[in-house]
Design a protein around this nucleic acid. Structure first.
Length: 708
DNA sequence: CTAACGCTCAATCGA
DNA sequence: TGAGCGTTAG
């Protein structure tokens, strides 16, 4: 095995990156612009700490936001130090907290077998509470998001009550909400369940109430690193401070311009107040961008500088000027999608790109539909990253709920999900009856059901149905210690679930069974719960379609941003508040800075949104860019192919009359295949491979080419 | 109780 | 556009 020495390790870094890597003692804030190699810094720092300073990998805590980022980080590190870092603390905030809580959560009154509720589960819980309280059920989403933001700010129900009680103005709704919040948290505990935000909040609580446990971790971690620090919320920041301990060997890396998770409680101010909270913080700025051409970078910077409240920075790139941006105005989303698909096909056929080099970014998920259709129409292999994930499918969630329930019989939300799925004659009325009974006796739903099967007072029909369900579950519970594949197969078999679904869904279940690799049920359930759809791999050579949010941290040679329109980007929900508008601008900035070589923006004059055909205006952000940043291509209404210059000459492949790969006929040389098509509109050149004479370059104006 | 039907309503971003 | 709901017949 090759051990790396300090010199070779540092060789691959620029002076600022080197600075950041070498500063191992005390707090460090790395302000890393887009594409400036921040992941690189973290990976190298990890390598430096372990190889040069002989720290043990498990003494370094590295936290990221997504599983994918964590996985990439791990791979980079392993490649650098040439050994496995399995079992070390590299992971997401949520998974690290889960790991901590699994050990000690009993001290907070939860059982160690707690399950993690996803958004679906929490919404179901909230709805059932609202129903019980006779509050209009439709507001459950608002309640959910309010609870999320409170927990993100470390305000649990108790604290919330004390705040609202001291505030005379807030009766009415707030008091009602407080009751719901209290009840919600109470129910979670009864169900032995945690929501996503609890994972963080309760870990903080654990450290607050049990300094001895914190101390244990403080001893364990001699260094902590946090990626995407601009996206931390108050709770995560507090957690970081706890973990930094007294040594304060904490390195946070982030870019305030890329903070795009405000709605999830992210607090850009964390990055701005870090220096205040950690005196003697060393600040390192990474301003050299290694990703994009100057043109792209300048355009992006022009836009982001319109934001106030940001740390000033000047990104620069040694890469050449590169192509200008393209901006294409189309008539509607279908035309836009086809324009994008055609551009991809033509660029691909030129041979310099693989499909994986392209990504199409958009603001809202529903834009993916038109884009997908165009991808199919043009036979382009594509992959939608994010969106409804595999684990959110009904059939998958149902079966996973059986698993969850087997491990944790207190989980009444999962129980309610599976109790009549597949249908076994236990409907809403019966469930309500059992629920009432359970509440009266202060027992769990399942215990109550067991009780019903043994008692005499109940109707025999009901007893029979409930009884056979209880026996089914008990049977399944007996497999608890087998490996998951076996448990899954048993669940599917014993419940006869497949009988109630169609072929496609049955296929998905097969896929679920096949995807299981580990043996441990707990690990499997945690993985599923903490899985996010943007963790999907980009494997295989295909065009990536995803939201701007999912694109963070990624890069592509060619990037399309679709729907650069007011109301879409910025989203109409955001235009009212200046803060949110700034966030939209950052989102646009994040998207633009994903591009390495080519950046193509597009908008539609009209777009069907929520089944309404809306007239759309170009995004206000476009006016913030100087017009010579980009070439504008306008598709005129009612014309087949039209290329009317608005901002300058046009040279994007798409608008050339001859598509690469097309068959053409020349009066003299006969039939040939177009290899390339380039140049300005007034003087387009084509490269054609004729079977008679080989490759010829022709000027379109003079060559009398006929399309075949 | 189930299943099928038609109606209403909501639809940003996501761990 | 579709998910979720109430209504209806079986």
């Amino acid at each position: 095995m090759r051990s790396i020495n300090k010199q070779t390790l540092l060789k691959g870094l620029n002076p600022q990156q080197k600075d950041a890597v070498l500063r191992t003692k005390g707090p460090l804030l790395v302000l890393a612009g887009a594409g400036s190699g921040k992941t690189r810094v973290i990976a190298y720092k990890f390598a430096y700490l372990t190889s040069a300073l002989n720290s043990h990998p498990s003494s370094i805590l590295t936290m990221t936001f997504t599983n994918k980022a964590a996985e990439e980080m791990r791979q980079r590190i392993e490649k650098l130090i040439n050994k496995s870092v399995k079992g070390s603390w590299i992971g997401t905030f949520h998974s690290m907290c889960n790991r901590i809580l699994r050990k000690d959560i009993e001290k907070l009154g939860f059982k160690r077998e707690f399950v993690i509720y996803d958004e679906d589960d929490t919404c179901n819980l909230i709805r059932s509470i609202l129903k019980e309280f006779r509050i209009h059920e439709a507001i459950y989403k608002g309640i959910a998001s309010k609870i999320t933001s409170l927990k993100a700010s470390l305000i649990g129900p108790k604290k919330f009550l004390s705040i609202t009680n001291n505030n005379d103005d807030h009766y009415g709704f707030d008091e009602k909400f407080a009751r719901v919040y209290v009840r919600y948290q109470d129910e979670l505990k009864r169900n032995n369940a945690l929501d996503f935000d609890d994972l963080i909040m309760l870990t903080v609580k654990l450290f607050e109430k049990h300094p001895d446990i914190l101390k244990k971790y403080n001893n364990e971690f001699s260094y902590i690193m946090i990626d995407e620090f601009q996206d931390t919320n108050v709770a995560q920041y507090r957690l970081s401070k706890f973990l930094a301990g007294t040594r304060k060997n904490i390195c946070v890396v982030g870019d305030d311009d890329q903070s795009i998770y405000r709605f999830r409680g992210a607090n850009v101010e964390n990055i701005l107040s870090f220096e205040r909270d950690f005196p003697k913080t060393k600040v390192v700025r990474l301003e050299q961008n290694y990703r994009s051409t100057q043109n792209i970078l300048e355009a992006a910077c022009e836009i982001i500088t319109k934001n106030s409240l940001r740390k000033p920075k000047k990104l620069w790139s040694e890469r050449g000027e590169g192509e200008k941006l393209f901006y294409c105005i189309t008539n509607d989303e279908r035309e836009e999608a086809r324009y994008i698909a055609r551009s991809i096909r033509e660029l691909y056929l030129k041979g310099r790109h693989s499909y994986g080099d392209f990504s199409v970014l958009y603001r809202i998920n529903l834009q993916s539909r038109a884009l997908e259709e165009a991808m199919i129409e043009y036979s382009l292999p594509y992959k939608v990253i994010g969106g409804v994930s595999f684990y959110q499918r009904k059939e998958i969630k149902d079966i996973v709920s059986y698993l969850k329930f087997i491990t944790n019989p207190d989980d009444s939300i999962s129980l309610k999900r599976i109790i009549n799925c597949p249908p076994r004659g236990i409907g809403a009325a019966t469930i309500t009856r059992i629920e009432n009974e359970a509440r009266k006796k202060n027992k769990s739903l399942f215990e109550t059901m067991k009780h019903i099967t043994h008692s005499n007072g109940t109707a025999t029909a009901l007893k029979k149905k409930v009884g056979s369900f209880v026996r089914l579950i008990e049977k399944l519970m007996s497999y608890k210690t087998s490996d998951i594949r076996r448990i899954l197969l048993q669940i599917i078999e014993k419940t006869e679930y497949v009988k109630s679904i169609d072929e496609e869904r049955a296929e998905n279940l097969k896929e679920l069974v096949n995807s299981v690799d580990g043996k441990d049920l707990r690990v499997f359930l945690d993985t599923v719960a903490l899985y996010s759809s943007s963790d999907d791999s980009h494997e295989g050579d295909s065009v990536s379609l995803m939201t701007l949010h999912s694109a963070k941290g990624l890069e592509f040679p060619v990037v399309f941003i679709a729907g650069v329109e007011d109301g879409v980007l910025p989203h109409f929900h955001a235009v009212k508040s200046p803060e949110e508008l700034q966030e939209e601008r950052r989102l646009f900035y994040v998207g633009m800075t994903r591009a390495q070589d080519l950046l193509i923006l597009s908008s539609a004059r009209k777009r069907t949104l929520y089944s309404l055909i809306q007239k759309q205006e170009a995004s206000r952000f476009l006016n913030e860019m100087s017009p010579d940043c980009y070439l504008c291509i306008e598709r005129k209404p009612r014309r087949e192919i039209l290329a009317a210059p608005v901002g300058g000459p046009i040279s994007l492949v798409k608008f050339t009359p001859f598509i690469t790969g097309a068959r053409v006929k020349h009066p003299k040389w006969g039939v040939g295949v177009v290899r390339d098509c380039y140049g300005e509109t007034e003087d387009l050149k084509v490269m054609v491979n004729f079977s008679s004479v080989g490759v010829k370059r022709l000027s379109l104006r003079f060559a009398n080419l006929e399309k075949l």
